[in-house]
Design a binder for these strands. Structure first.
Lengths: 247, 247
DNA sequence: GCTTGCGCCTGACGTTACGTCAGAGTTTAG
DNA sequence: CTAAACTCTGACGTAACGTCAGGCGCAAGC
Protein backbone atom coordinates (compact mmCIF):
# COMPACT_ATOMS: atom_id res chain seq x y z
CA UNK A 1 0.00 0.00 0.00
CA UNK A 2 3.00 2.30 0.22
CA UNK A 3 4.42 4.17 -2.70
CA UNK A 4 6.33 1.45 -4.41
CA UNK A 5 8.32 3.90 -6.46
CA UNK A 6 9.87 7.15 -5.35
CA UNK A 7 8.62 10.24 -7.05
CA UNK A 8 10.40 13.53 -7.46
CA UNK A 9 9.17 17.05 -7.71
CA UNK A 10 10.23 19.38 -10.43
CA UNK A 11 13.55 20.71 -9.16
CA UNK A 12 14.91 17.38 -7.99
CA UNK A 13 13.89 15.64 -11.13
CA UNK A 14 15.25 18.35 -13.36
CA UNK A 15 18.60 18.31 -11.63
CA UNK A 16 18.80 14.55 -11.91
CA UNK A 17 18.33 14.82 -15.64
CA UNK A 18 20.54 17.83 -16.12
CA UNK A 19 17.83 20.15 -17.37
CA UNK A 20 15.94 23.07 -15.83
CA UNK A 21 12.51 23.18 -14.29
CA UNK A 22 11.41 25.51 -17.01
CA UNK A 23 12.32 22.89 -19.55
CA UNK A 24 10.05 20.44 -17.79
CA UNK A 25 7.22 22.93 -17.92
CA UNK A 26 7.90 23.40 -21.59
CA UNK A 27 7.89 19.72 -22.38
CA UNK A 28 4.77 19.29 -20.34
CA UNK A 29 2.94 21.94 -22.29
CA UNK A 30 4.12 20.46 -25.57
CA UNK A 31 2.85 17.09 -24.45
CA UNK A 32 6.34 15.74 -24.93
CA UNK A 33 6.83 14.64 -21.36
CA UNK A 34 3.90 14.63 -18.99
CA UNK A 35 4.73 13.90 -15.35
CA UNK A 36 3.24 10.59 -14.27
CA UNK A 37 1.19 12.39 -11.64
CA UNK A 38 0.17 15.73 -10.22
CA UNK A 39 -0.53 16.46 -6.59
CA UNK A 40 -3.93 17.84 -5.76
CA UNK A 41 -2.41 21.30 -5.78
CA UNK A 42 -0.95 20.96 -9.25
CA UNK A 43 2.64 20.06 -8.37
CA UNK A 44 4.32 17.84 -10.91
CA UNK A 45 5.50 14.42 -9.77
CA UNK A 46 7.99 12.48 -11.84
CA UNK A 47 9.23 8.92 -11.53
CA UNK A 48 12.03 6.76 -12.90
CA UNK A 49 10.12 5.91 -16.03
CA UNK A 50 9.82 9.59 -16.75
CA UNK A 51 13.54 9.92 -16.34
CA UNK A 52 14.12 7.31 -19.02
CA UNK A 53 11.91 9.16 -21.45
CA UNK A 54 13.49 12.47 -20.64
CA UNK A 55 16.92 11.01 -21.34
CA UNK A 56 15.72 9.80 -24.69
CA UNK A 57 14.46 13.26 -25.44
CA UNK A 58 17.75 14.83 -24.44
CA UNK A 59 19.64 12.40 -26.59
CA UNK A 60 17.52 12.93 -29.65
CA UNK A 61 17.91 16.63 -29.14
CA UNK A 62 21.65 16.18 -28.98
CA UNK A 63 21.47 14.50 -32.34
CA UNK A 64 19.76 17.60 -33.57
CA UNK A 65 16.13 16.66 -33.85
CA UNK A 66 13.52 19.28 -33.09
CA UNK A 67 11.08 18.70 -30.28
CA UNK A 68 8.36 18.17 -32.85
CA UNK A 69 10.33 15.45 -34.56
CA UNK A 70 11.21 13.88 -31.26
CA UNK A 71 7.58 13.76 -30.34
CA UNK A 72 6.66 11.74 -33.37
CA UNK A 73 9.81 9.63 -33.21
CA UNK A 74 9.00 8.54 -29.70
CA UNK A 75 5.64 7.28 -30.83
CA UNK A 76 6.59 5.44 -33.97
CA UNK A 77 9.08 2.82 -32.97
CA UNK A 78 11.86 1.68 -35.23
CA UNK A 79 11.13 1.85 -38.92
CA UNK A 80 10.79 5.58 -39.21
CA UNK A 81 13.68 6.11 -36.88
CA UNK A 82 16.12 4.59 -39.33
CA UNK A 83 15.17 6.97 -42.13
CA UNK A 84 15.12 9.89 -39.77
CA UNK A 85 18.62 9.07 -38.58
CA UNK A 86 19.95 8.86 -42.10
CA UNK A 87 18.46 12.17 -43.01
CA UNK A 88 19.72 13.75 -39.84
CA UNK A 89 23.23 12.47 -40.40
CA UNK A 90 23.34 14.09 -43.81
CA UNK A 91 22.08 17.36 -42.43
CA UNK A 92 24.67 17.36 -39.70
CA UNK A 93 27.48 16.56 -42.09
CA UNK A 94 26.33 19.44 -44.21
CA UNK A 95 26.49 21.77 -41.25
CA UNK A 96 29.89 20.43 -40.33
CA UNK A 97 31.25 21.23 -43.75
CA UNK A 98 29.79 24.67 -43.46
CA UNK A 99 31.54 25.23 -40.16
CA UNK A 100 34.75 23.84 -41.59
CA UNK A 101 34.69 26.40 -44.34
CA UNK A 102 33.87 29.12 -41.86
CA UNK A 103 36.92 28.18 -39.84
CA UNK A 104 39.08 28.25 -42.94
CA UNK A 105 37.75 31.66 -43.74
CA UNK A 106 38.47 32.94 -40.28
CA UNK A 107 41.99 31.55 -40.31
CA UNK A 108 42.69 33.26 -43.57
CA UNK A 109 41.27 36.48 -42.28
CA UNK A 110 43.36 36.24 -39.14
CA UNK A 111 46.46 35.70 -41.18
CA UNK A 112 45.85 38.78 -43.26
CA UNK A 113 44.95 40.94 -40.31
CA UNK A 114 47.89 39.94 -38.16
CA UNK A 115 50.68 39.91 -40.71
CA UNK A 116 50.05 43.00 -42.73
CA UNK A 117 48.50 46.11 -41.40
CA UNK A 118 44.82 45.56 -40.70
CA UNK A 119 44.11 45.85 -44.38
CA UNK A 120 40.45 46.17 -45.07
CA UNK A 121 41.00 45.64 -48.77
CA UNK A 122 42.70 42.32 -48.31
CA UNK A 123 39.95 41.31 -45.98
CA UNK A 124 37.49 42.12 -48.69
CA UNK A 125 39.14 39.64 -51.01
CA UNK A 126 38.75 36.93 -48.46
CA UNK A 127 35.17 37.93 -48.17
CA UNK A 128 34.75 37.35 -51.85
CA UNK A 129 36.30 33.93 -51.70
CA UNK A 130 34.04 32.98 -48.87
CA UNK A 131 31.05 34.26 -50.72
CA UNK A 132 31.99 32.08 -53.61
CA UNK A 133 31.96 29.14 -51.30
CA UNK A 134 28.60 30.29 -50.08
CA UNK A 135 27.42 30.24 -53.61
CA UNK A 136 27.65 26.51 -53.58
CA UNK A 137 24.29 26.84 -51.92
CA UNK A 138 22.12 28.39 -54.57
CA UNK A 139 23.64 26.24 -57.30
CA UNK A 140 22.25 23.19 -55.59
CA UNK A 141 18.89 23.55 -57.24
CA UNK A 142 20.46 22.64 -60.57
CA UNK A 143 21.86 19.35 -59.40
CA UNK A 144 20.02 16.13 -58.77
CA UNK A 145 19.91 15.02 -55.20
CA UNK A 146 22.52 12.35 -55.55
CA UNK A 147 24.78 14.73 -57.45
CA UNK A 148 24.51 17.21 -54.62
CA UNK A 149 25.53 14.54 -52.20
CA UNK A 150 28.53 13.49 -54.19
CA UNK A 151 29.64 17.07 -54.56
CA UNK A 152 29.22 17.74 -50.88
CA UNK A 153 31.29 14.71 -49.97
CA UNK A 154 34.23 15.83 -52.02
CA UNK A 155 33.94 19.52 -51.24
CA UNK A 156 36.37 19.86 -48.39
CA UNK A 157 37.67 23.38 -47.85
CA UNK A 158 41.10 22.38 -49.11
CA UNK A 159 39.76 20.98 -52.34
CA UNK A 160 37.63 24.04 -52.93
CA UNK A 161 40.53 26.36 -52.36
CA UNK A 162 42.85 24.37 -54.58
CA UNK A 163 40.23 24.41 -57.31
CA UNK A 164 39.79 28.13 -57.01
CA UNK A 165 43.53 28.70 -57.24
CA UNK A 166 43.79 26.49 -60.29
CA UNK A 167 40.99 28.29 -62.03
CA UNK A 168 42.32 31.72 -61.14
CA UNK A 169 45.72 30.80 -62.53
CA UNK A 170 44.36 29.34 -65.73
CA UNK A 171 41.98 32.23 -66.33
CA UNK A 172 44.80 34.70 -65.85
CA UNK A 173 46.86 32.91 -68.50
CA UNK A 174 43.97 32.78 -70.92
CA UNK A 175 43.31 36.46 -70.41
CA UNK A 176 46.91 37.15 -71.23
CA UNK A 177 46.63 35.04 -74.36
CA UNK A 178 43.52 36.94 -75.42
CA UNK A 179 45.29 40.25 -74.85
CA UNK A 180 48.24 39.10 -76.89
CA UNK A 181 45.95 38.18 -79.76
CA UNK A 182 47.05 34.58 -79.55
CA UNK A 183 45.68 32.42 -82.34
CA UNK A 184 43.06 30.07 -80.89
CA UNK A 185 44.32 27.30 -83.11
CA UNK A 186 47.91 27.58 -81.94
CA UNK A 187 49.62 24.92 -79.93
CA UNK A 188 49.61 27.07 -76.81
CA UNK A 189 45.91 27.79 -77.13
CA UNK A 190 45.04 24.15 -77.47
CA UNK A 191 47.09 23.45 -74.38
CA UNK A 192 45.12 26.03 -72.46
CA UNK A 193 41.86 24.54 -73.67
CA UNK A 194 43.04 21.13 -72.58
CA UNK A 195 43.84 22.38 -69.11
CA UNK A 196 40.43 24.01 -69.05
CA UNK A 197 38.52 20.87 -69.76
CA UNK A 198 40.78 19.04 -67.36
CA UNK A 199 39.65 21.34 -64.56
CA UNK A 200 36.05 20.85 -65.58
CA UNK A 201 36.48 17.10 -65.45
CA UNK A 202 38.20 17.46 -62.11
CA UNK A 203 35.13 19.24 -60.82
CA UNK A 204 32.63 16.78 -62.21
CA UNK A 205 34.83 13.87 -61.26
CA UNK A 206 33.61 12.24 -64.45
CA UNK A 207 30.21 11.85 -62.86
CA UNK A 208 27.44 12.19 -65.44
CA UNK A 209 24.92 13.49 -62.95
CA UNK A 210 27.23 16.28 -61.88
CA UNK A 211 28.00 17.05 -65.50
CA UNK A 212 24.32 17.30 -66.26
CA UNK A 213 23.79 19.65 -63.32
CA UNK A 214 26.70 21.81 -64.37
CA UNK A 215 25.29 22.04 -67.86
CA UNK A 216 21.90 23.08 -66.57
CA UNK A 217 23.58 25.59 -64.32
CA UNK A 218 25.45 27.25 -67.17
CA UNK A 219 22.50 27.11 -69.52
CA UNK A 220 20.51 29.17 -67.07
CA UNK A 221 22.91 32.08 -66.75
CA UNK A 222 20.14 34.61 -67.13
CA UNK A 223 18.68 33.49 -63.83
CA UNK A 224 21.86 33.58 -61.81
CA UNK A 225 21.76 35.67 -58.64
CA UNK A 226 23.70 38.26 -60.59
CA UNK A 227 25.89 38.96 -57.61
CA UNK A 228 27.61 35.85 -58.80
CA UNK A 229 29.93 36.90 -61.56
CA UNK A 230 31.12 34.35 -63.99
CA UNK A 231 34.80 34.30 -63.06
CA UNK A 232 35.92 34.90 -66.62
CA UNK A 233 34.97 37.36 -69.33
CA UNK A 234 32.97 36.55 -72.45
CA UNK A 235 36.13 36.97 -74.50
CA UNK A 236 37.85 34.32 -72.48
CA UNK A 237 34.92 32.00 -72.96
CA UNK A 238 34.88 32.60 -76.70
CA UNK A 239 38.61 32.04 -76.92
CA UNK A 240 38.41 28.74 -75.09
CA UNK A 241 35.51 27.56 -77.21
CA UNK A 242 37.47 28.38 -80.32
CA UNK A 243 40.61 26.72 -79.04
CA UNK A 244 38.67 23.64 -78.07
CA UNK A 245 37.20 23.54 -81.52
CA UNK A 246 33.61 24.00 -80.37
CA UNK A 247 31.44 26.37 -82.32
CA UNK B 1 23.94 66.87 -63.01
CA UNK B 2 22.84 63.38 -63.91
CA UNK B 3 22.92 60.51 -61.49
CA UNK B 4 26.54 59.63 -61.61
CA UNK B 5 25.96 56.26 -60.05
CA UNK B 6 23.20 53.80 -60.79
CA UNK B 7 20.84 53.08 -57.94
CA UNK B 8 18.74 50.01 -57.42
CA UNK B 9 15.37 49.41 -55.90
CA UNK B 10 14.90 46.86 -53.19
CA UNK B 11 14.19 43.78 -55.29
CA UNK B 12 16.98 44.36 -57.78
CA UNK B 13 19.46 45.12 -55.10
CA UNK B 14 18.45 42.17 -52.97
CA UNK B 15 18.78 39.78 -55.89
CA UNK B 16 22.18 41.16 -56.74
CA UNK B 17 23.36 40.42 -53.23
CA UNK B 18 21.60 37.09 -52.93
CA UNK B 19 19.30 38.09 -50.09
CA UNK B 20 15.61 38.89 -49.86
CA UNK B 21 13.85 42.22 -49.75
CA UNK B 22 12.63 41.41 -46.29
CA UNK B 23 16.21 41.05 -45.18
CA UNK B 24 16.91 44.55 -46.43
CA UNK B 25 13.96 45.88 -44.49
CA UNK B 26 15.27 44.08 -41.46
CA UNK B 27 18.78 45.48 -41.74
CA UNK B 28 17.36 48.89 -42.35
CA UNK B 29 15.33 48.80 -39.18
CA UNK B 30 18.29 47.52 -37.20
CA UNK B 31 20.36 50.35 -38.58
CA UNK B 32 22.77 47.80 -39.95
CA UNK B 33 22.40 48.84 -43.57
CA UNK B 34 20.55 52.01 -44.43
CA UNK B 35 19.93 52.60 -48.12
CA UNK B 36 21.89 55.58 -49.36
CA UNK B 37 18.65 57.29 -50.33
CA UNK B 38 14.88 57.12 -50.23
CA UNK B 39 12.53 58.38 -52.92
CA UNK B 40 9.96 60.94 -51.92
CA UNK B 41 7.46 58.10 -51.55
CA UNK B 42 9.62 56.11 -49.21
CA UNK B 43 11.12 53.64 -51.68
CA UNK B 44 14.60 52.46 -50.76
CA UNK B 45 17.43 53.22 -53.16
CA UNK B 46 20.71 51.36 -52.92
CA UNK B 47 24.02 51.92 -54.66
CA UNK B 48 27.27 50.08 -55.20
CA UNK B 49 28.74 51.22 -51.93
CA UNK B 50 25.76 49.69 -50.17
CA UNK B 51 26.43 46.46 -51.97
CA UNK B 52 29.95 46.35 -50.57
CA UNK B 53 28.69 46.80 -47.06
CA UNK B 54 25.98 44.23 -47.52
CA UNK B 55 28.54 41.74 -48.71
CA UNK B 56 30.61 42.36 -45.63
CA UNK B 57 27.55 41.74 -43.53
CA UNK B 58 26.77 38.52 -45.34
CA UNK B 59 30.32 37.34 -44.88
CA UNK B 60 30.45 38.09 -41.19
CA UNK B 61 27.14 36.31 -40.82
CA UNK B 62 28.62 33.34 -42.61
CA UNK B 63 31.38 33.28 -40.05
CA UNK B 64 28.69 33.07 -37.44
CA UNK B 65 28.51 36.53 -35.96
CA UNK B 66 25.15 37.83 -34.84
CA UNK B 67 23.77 40.95 -36.44
CA UNK B 68 24.47 42.81 -33.24
CA UNK B 69 28.11 41.81 -33.28
CA UNK B 70 28.39 42.65 -36.94
CA UNK B 71 27.03 46.08 -36.30
CA UNK B 72 29.73 46.89 -33.81
CA UNK B 73 32.44 45.14 -35.82
CA UNK B 74 31.69 47.27 -38.85
CA UNK B 75 32.25 50.39 -36.82
CA UNK B 76 35.41 49.49 -34.97
CA UNK B 77 38.02 48.76 -37.54
CA UNK B 78 40.77 46.25 -37.04
CA UNK B 79 41.92 45.72 -33.49
CA UNK B 80 38.67 44.41 -32.11
CA UNK B 81 38.12 42.34 -35.17
CA UNK B 82 41.15 40.22 -34.43
CA UNK B 83 39.97 39.26 -30.97
CA UNK B 84 36.47 38.68 -32.22
CA UNK B 85 37.75 36.36 -34.92
CA UNK B 86 39.78 34.36 -32.46
CA UNK B 87 36.84 33.94 -30.16
CA UNK B 88 34.57 33.04 -33.02
CA UNK B 89 36.98 30.44 -34.31
CA UNK B 90 36.99 28.72 -30.97
CA UNK B 91 33.25 28.74 -30.79
CA UNK B 92 32.92 27.27 -34.22
CA UNK B 93 35.46 24.58 -33.54
CA UNK B 94 33.49 23.70 -30.46
CA UNK B 95 30.33 23.37 -32.47
CA UNK B 96 32.13 21.29 -35.02
CA UNK B 97 33.29 18.84 -32.41
CA UNK B 98 29.76 18.67 -31.12
CA UNK B 99 28.46 17.81 -34.54
CA UNK B 100 31.21 15.26 -34.99
CA UNK B 101 30.14 13.46 -31.89
CA UNK B 102 26.53 13.66 -32.94
CA UNK B 103 27.42 11.99 -36.21
CA UNK B 104 29.29 9.27 -34.38
CA UNK B 105 26.28 8.72 -32.20
CA UNK B 106 23.97 8.47 -35.16
CA UNK B 107 26.23 6.04 -36.94
CA UNK B 108 26.32 3.83 -33.92
CA UNK B 109 22.59 4.01 -33.56
CA UNK B 110 22.13 3.15 -37.21
CA UNK B 111 24.36 0.15 -36.81
CA UNK B 112 22.38 -1.18 -33.91
CA UNK B 113 19.04 -0.55 -35.53
CA UNK B 114 19.90 -2.11 -38.85
CA UNK B 115 21.78 -5.18 -37.72
CA UNK B 116 19.77 -6.46 -34.83
CA UNK B 117 16.08 -6.06 -34.48
CA UNK B 118 15.25 -2.42 -33.79
CA UNK B 119 16.32 -2.92 -30.23
CA UNK B 120 15.26 -0.06 -28.04
CA UNK B 121 17.38 -1.30 -25.20
CA UNK B 122 20.57 -1.27 -27.18
CA UNK B 123 19.68 2.15 -28.39
CA UNK B 124 19.37 3.24 -24.83
CA UNK B 125 22.96 2.27 -24.15
CA UNK B 126 24.11 4.43 -26.99
CA UNK B 127 22.07 7.18 -25.50
CA UNK B 128 23.97 6.84 -22.27
CA UNK B 129 27.31 6.99 -23.98
CA UNK B 130 26.28 10.10 -25.80
CA UNK B 131 25.04 11.67 -22.65
CA UNK B 132 28.39 11.06 -21.07
CA UNK B 133 29.98 12.89 -23.93
CA UNK B 134 27.50 15.66 -23.32
CA UNK B 135 28.68 15.82 -19.78
CA UNK B 136 31.96 17.20 -20.99
CA UNK B 137 30.04 20.44 -21.08
CA UNK B 138 29.27 21.12 -17.45
CA UNK B 139 32.73 20.00 -16.34
CA UNK B 140 34.25 22.85 -18.26
CA UNK B 141 33.73 25.32 -15.49
CA UNK B 142 36.39 23.52 -13.46
CA UNK B 143 39.11 23.87 -16.03
CA UNK B 144 41.10 26.93 -16.89
CA UNK B 145 40.51 28.30 -20.33
CA UNK B 146 43.67 26.95 -21.82
CA UNK B 147 43.04 23.56 -20.25
CA UNK B 148 39.61 23.45 -21.82
CA UNK B 149 41.15 24.17 -25.17
CA UNK B 150 43.74 21.47 -24.87
CA UNK B 151 41.14 18.97 -23.80
CA UNK B 152 38.86 19.90 -26.64
CA UNK B 153 41.64 19.49 -29.16
CA UNK B 154 42.40 15.97 -28.11
CA UNK B 155 38.81 14.92 -27.54
CA UNK B 156 37.96 13.33 -30.83
CA UNK B 157 35.04 10.92 -30.69
CA UNK B 158 37.38 7.96 -31.17
CA UNK B 159 39.58 8.95 -28.28
CA UNK B 160 36.59 9.47 -26.04
CA UNK B 161 35.16 6.12 -26.90
CA UNK B 162 38.45 4.35 -26.42
CA UNK B 163 38.85 6.02 -23.06
CA UNK B 164 35.40 5.00 -21.97
CA UNK B 165 36.05 1.42 -22.98
CA UNK B 166 39.31 1.36 -21.10
CA UNK B 167 37.74 2.75 -17.98
CA UNK B 168 34.77 0.42 -18.14
CA UNK B 169 37.09 -2.56 -18.48
CA UNK B 170 39.33 -1.53 -15.63
CA UNK B 171 36.46 -0.69 -13.31
CA UNK B 172 34.91 -4.05 -13.99
CA UNK B 173 38.13 -5.75 -12.99
CA UNK B 174 38.50 -3.68 -9.86
CA UNK B 175 34.94 -4.44 -8.90
CA UNK B 176 35.70 -8.10 -9.26
CA UNK B 177 38.77 -7.71 -7.09
CA UNK B 178 36.73 -5.95 -4.43
CA UNK B 179 34.13 -8.70 -4.51
CA UNK B 180 36.82 -11.32 -4.19
CA UNK B 181 38.21 -9.58 -1.15
CA UNK B 182 41.52 -9.06 -2.88
CA UNK B 183 44.19 -7.64 -0.64
CA UNK B 184 44.88 -4.02 -1.67
CA UNK B 185 48.56 -4.58 -1.09
CA UNK B 186 48.80 -7.61 -3.33
CA UNK B 187 50.71 -7.63 -6.55
CA UNK B 188 47.51 -7.78 -8.59
CA UNK B 189 46.01 -4.83 -6.74
CA UNK B 190 49.05 -2.71 -7.29
CA UNK B 191 48.89 -3.58 -10.95
CA UNK B 192 45.29 -2.41 -11.08
CA UNK B 193 46.20 0.81 -9.32
CA UNK B 194 49.01 1.35 -11.78
CA UNK B 195 46.65 0.93 -14.71
CA UNK B 196 44.28 3.33 -12.99
CA UNK B 197 46.78 6.10 -12.67
CA UNK B 198 47.94 5.37 -16.17
CA UNK B 199 44.45 6.11 -17.48
CA UNK B 200 44.32 9.26 -15.42
CA UNK B 201 47.63 10.39 -16.87
CA UNK B 202 46.34 9.51 -20.30
CA UNK B 203 43.42 11.82 -19.71
CA UNK B 204 45.46 14.68 -18.37
CA UNK B 205 48.17 14.09 -20.92
CA UNK B 206 50.60 15.08 -18.21
CA UNK B 207 49.35 18.63 -18.46
CA UNK B 208 49.41 20.35 -15.07
CA UNK B 209 46.52 22.65 -15.92
CA UNK B 210 44.31 19.75 -16.80
CA UNK B 211 45.39 17.92 -13.68
CA UNK B 212 44.49 20.91 -11.59
CA UNK B 213 41.08 21.14 -13.20
CA UNK B 214 40.44 17.46 -12.67
CA UNK B 215 41.34 17.82 -9.03
CA UNK B 216 38.97 20.73 -8.59
CA UNK B 217 36.30 18.75 -10.38
CA UNK B 218 36.57 15.79 -8.04
CA UNK B 219 36.90 17.95 -4.97
CA UNK B 220 33.53 19.45 -5.73
CA UNK B 221 31.56 16.25 -5.94
CA UNK B 222 28.76 17.64 -3.80
CA UNK B 223 27.91 20.11 -6.53
CA UNK B 224 27.83 17.69 -9.41
CA UNK B 225 24.66 17.70 -11.50
CA UNK B 226 23.73 14.49 -9.72
CA UNK B 227 22.49 12.98 -12.92
CA UNK B 228 26.16 12.39 -13.45
CA UNK B 229 27.05 9.26 -11.59
CA UNK B 230 30.64 8.69 -10.71
CA UNK B 231 31.31 5.65 -12.88
CA UNK B 232 32.63 3.60 -9.96
CA UNK B 233 31.41 2.86 -6.47
CA UNK B 234 32.90 4.25 -3.29
CA UNK B 235 34.29 0.82 -2.51
CA UNK B 236 36.16 0.78 -5.77
CA UNK B 237 37.58 4.19 -5.01
CA UNK B 238 38.67 3.16 -1.53
CA UNK B 239 40.25 0.03 -2.89
CA UNK B 240 42.25 1.89 -5.46
CA UNK B 241 43.39 4.47 -2.95
CA UNK B 242 44.57 1.73 -0.67
CA UNK B 243 46.29 -0.13 -3.46
CA UNK B 244 48.01 3.03 -4.58
CA UNK B 245 49.15 3.63 -1.03
CA UNK B 246 47.27 6.92 -0.65
CA UNK B 247 45.46 7.57 2.58
C1' DG C 1 -2.04 30.45 14.89
C1' DC C 2 1.06 33.16 12.26
C1' DT C 3 4.95 34.45 9.84
C1' DT C 4 9.09 33.28 7.28
C1' DG C 5 11.36 31.25 3.53
C1' DC C 6 11.78 28.14 -0.03
C1' DG C 7 9.69 25.82 -3.80
C1' DC C 8 5.96 25.35 -7.00
C1' DC C 9 2.52 27.08 -10.24
C1' DT C 10 0.80 29.74 -14.37
C1' DG C 11 0.89 33.32 -17.67
C1' DA C 12 3.37 36.61 -20.49
C1' DC C 13 7.00 38.80 -22.70
C1' DG C 14 12.05 38.47 -24.62
C1' DT C 15 15.32 36.25 -27.77
C1' DT C 16 17.30 35.56 -33.32
C1' DA C 17 16.82 36.63 -38.03
C1' DC C 18 14.06 36.96 -40.65
C1' DG C 19 9.22 34.61 -43.31
C1' DT C 20 4.63 35.43 -44.18
C1' DC C 21 0.54 37.65 -44.65
C1' DA C 22 -2.51 41.98 -44.66
C1' DG C 23 -3.81 46.36 -46.18
C1' DA C 24 -2.55 50.23 -48.84
C1' DG C 25 0.11 53.19 -51.90
C1' DT C 26 3.38 53.65 -56.42
C1' DT C 27 5.05 52.97 -60.78
C1' DT C 28 4.88 51.43 -65.33
C1' DA C 29 3.48 49.17 -69.54
C1' DG C 30 -0.18 48.91 -72.69
C1' DC D 1 -6.76 54.73 -67.45
C1' DT D 2 -6.39 50.20 -65.72
C1' DA D 3 -3.97 46.03 -64.61
C1' DA D 4 0.32 44.08 -63.28
C1' DA D 5 4.16 44.40 -60.66
C1' DC D 6 6.61 46.48 -57.15
C1' DT D 7 6.95 48.91 -52.69
C1' DC D 8 5.86 50.32 -48.05
C1' DT D 9 4.69 49.60 -43.00
C1' DG D 10 3.00 47.03 -39.24
C1' DA D 11 2.02 42.69 -36.95
C1' DC D 12 2.20 38.01 -35.97
C1' DG D 13 4.83 33.37 -36.36
C1' DT D 14 9.00 30.50 -35.59
C1' DA D 15 12.26 27.15 -31.75
C1' DA D 16 13.29 26.28 -27.32
C1' DC D 17 13.35 27.80 -23.75
C1' DG D 18 15.02 32.17 -20.11
C1' DT D 19 13.34 35.47 -17.25
C1' DC D 20 10.43 37.96 -14.57
C1' DA D 21 5.93 38.70 -11.97
C1' DG D 22 2.18 37.59 -9.20
C1' DG D 23 0.19 34.18 -6.41
C1' DC D 24 -0.14 29.50 -3.75
C1' DG D 25 1.73 25.38 -0.97
C1' DC D 26 4.28 23.62 2.74
C1' DA D 27 7.27 22.76 6.64
C1' DA D 28 9.41 25.07 10.58
C1' DG D 29 10.09 28.43 14.16
C1' DC D 30 7.69 32.07 17.20
Amino acid sequence: MKDQEASYQAQQFATRAGVTVRTLHHYDRLGLLKPSAYTGTGYRLYRESDLARLQQIVTLKYIGFSLQEIKTLLVQNGRDLATALRRQRKIINQKRRHLGMAVQAIEKAELVISSEAPDWEAFKKIIEVINMQNDMEWTRKYYSESATEKLAERATPEVIEQGQNDWAQLIKEVEAAVRDGEDPTSEKSRSLAARWSHLVRQFTGGDPEISAGLKKLYADQSNWPAHFQKPYSDEVEAFICAAAGKK
